[in-house]
Write a protein that binds this DNA or RNA. Structure first.
Lengths: 345, 345
DNA sequence: GCATGTCCCGTAAACGTTTACGACGATACT
DNA sequence: AGTATCGTCGTAAACGTTTACGGGACATGC
């Protein structure tokens, strides 16, 4: 005899009453409820989730899919740990647990997500690293599983998302560089079709146009999102026939590899070339010279993500009346010295 | 009508036969099995995990608990991303899925683990960041849930673990420094009672004794595991009345903050003080001067962790006849220039 | 012809919950 | 007194799956 039955037997009450007592239902004597709660605590009873979710159709857990594999992590250090902490903060008050579902580098993200949805383990899903056309979004919509995406997508059909303000980053970056006389501004983009690459690219072209600078495809350098990617960007950039005087990066880790390659070539950021990095990290302050980059609160972003998901879950919609969330998350410029390089007129 | 019932109805077979066909049981006609499999694929049937695990008592998923919170992460999140990738590689061939369970900074890890175990969501557990006396180990043992710990523990009772070779790290570090004439060697340790701090500490004292160097408690500097911790270590180290000539760190991220503080003080690693860091990361090669540190394959470590857990799960024990795994994971020295500082005799 | 065995399949119970429904006694109201 | 209301509780069905059990059809051996 296990679970709620044992509890009921020990208290000599019916299992229905025990269940109602534990779940705070009204039609139970407060005195017996106290007895039940006390006994439950005493014998360390915890409801079996399988039984509960079989009956309920809900699991009180939500999933957060990320991509595993250290070498593919473009937003290094602790981007996800920070965001996750915020998501948990948003969910904890509703007694929802967060499970992180890492998609192996060897598996297709859509296939993986399909499996995880089918598991019926979660009541909602947060997906990250959205692509230009992302099959996962249609998949989640078809499964009618509430979800929110960390990152926009070109996939048709409305869906909630929160995305970083890449336009703002590239706009302020270009403005800042143009003000210092730069006109040949390179940009390091991801090599795959992740959506932020498109957003960044479009923002870049628009910013150039705003300043009347012609667009040169040679200045678009695509590489992996990691430190190696940054190294490769610097490498290609140095080999360009007409070397750019500035570069804007789209991933946090790129700056490290870029600095390394520039260093090897004797090209010093801030003196011989202007560099604007992406997200501030523990190392950006230490890079020499300090990197001009952008700051955001990972925890706040996580909280916003969590609340957006809650808003799209029927059971919590009235508590979070935000409707369908589509939100651009701002980043704050952190001036360093890596873009001190000024072009004399 | 949903699930296996719908499938059975559509095929006009009983649900028992459908289940047997899907699960590869022998007593089913191969022709009908083919029909069932085809129909299942056609209508995208996937078994409901709640129903299955309620009946089976198993979920085909294993958990990996980590601590969330960006500021508490001494080994950035690519540490876990790398390990996770290896764990998944070990599990994928058995169709076991990995779910990462991040314990919020605001919750007690034991309480959290208790909740997660009670969820009945996983068939096994990998725990990390083991403490000197870790209540989670007794908890898992009592729950009879197979588990393996990433990190040793002083908790009584045998349990499987894999841990990094902290003794080897501190031994080789001290040897290397002593060979260069150092005798006042500081060490940066974690401020909490995480077990690796004890192991490192004991190894440090043993290494000193081996070289006949008296132990000076003032050279033990405890700080957080993050970049800020490294900054604080450098700060305290610089203020010591008799300044050490060398320092060994225990966390990857500490090196960055330590360099920063040393830089502020005009003390250059490799010239004015010898520094040996812990794990090699994207930034360690770039730090100026390059950091002497240690390398390990995160993926291989993850594979070993996964296989150790499989070995302790009854259902897989005969495939992985390793018994109770207790394993010290080696690290490879990566010489840099940060410990080039030689003490003249 | 009968016992035995084999192959395939249907039936029903069980896993641990939650909840709709009804029952019971006590109280209040007409 | 009869009836309606209320508070409290027990009963049983349902969620979707797996599997022990048994039965029917057919073949084989005596």
């Amino acid at each position: 005899m296990k679970g709620i039955r044992r509890l009921a037997q020990q208290l000599d009450i019916s299992i229905g009453t025990v269940s109602r007592a534990l779940n705070g239902k009204p039609d139970v004597n407060e005195q017996t409820r106290a007895r039940v709660l006390e006994a439950a605590a005493a014998m360390g009873y915890v409801p079996n989730q399988a039984g509960r979710s079989l009956r309920e159709g809900s699991t009180k857990a939500i999933g957060f899919t990320i991509e595993s594999g250290a070498d593919t992590a473009g937003n290094g250090d602790n981007f996800f740990l920070g965001v996750i902490d915020g998501v948990q903060a948003a969910f904890s008050r509703h007694h929802l647990d967060l499970v992180v579902l890492p998609c192996s580098t060897e598996e297709d993200p859509s296939q993986y997500l399909r499996r995880m949805v089918a598991r019926g383990m979660v009541d909602g899903m947060i997906i990250s690293a959205t692509h230009r056309r992302d099959a996962r979004i249609e998949l989640l919509a078809n499964a009618r599983l509430p979800f929110v995406a960390l990152g926009r997508s070109g996939t048709p059909g409305p869906h909630p998302w929160i995305d970083l303000d890449f336009e703002g980053v590239v706009n302020r970056g270009v403005d800042r560089l143009v003000a210092k006389g730069h006109r040949r501004i390179a940009v390091g983009l991801p090599s795959n079709d992740i959506n932020l690459g498109f957003v960044f690219f479009e923002g870049y072209k628009a910013a150039l146009a705003r300043h009347g600078i012609p667009f040169d495809p040679a200045l678009i350098i695509r590489a992996g999102s990691s430190e190696q990617g940054g190294y490769q960007i610097a490498h290609e950039l140095l080999n360009l026939p007409e070397r750019p005087t500035a570069v804007i990066l789209i991933y946090e880790m790129m700056a490290i590899g870029l600095y390394r390659r520039l260093n090897e070539a004797g090209v010093r950021p801030g003196r011989d070339i202007a560099v604007i990095g992406f997200r501030e990290g523990p190392q950006s302050r230490f890079l020499s010279p300090p990197l001009t980059c952008f700051r955001l609160s990972l925890r706040d972003l996580g909280v916003a993500l969590g609340e957006s998901l809650l808003a799209s879950m029927p059971a919590y919609a009235e508590i979070y009346p935000q409707g369908l969330v589509r939100r651009i998350w701002p980043l704050e410029l952190v001036p360093g010295e890596s873009d001190d390089f000024i072009i004399p007129r």
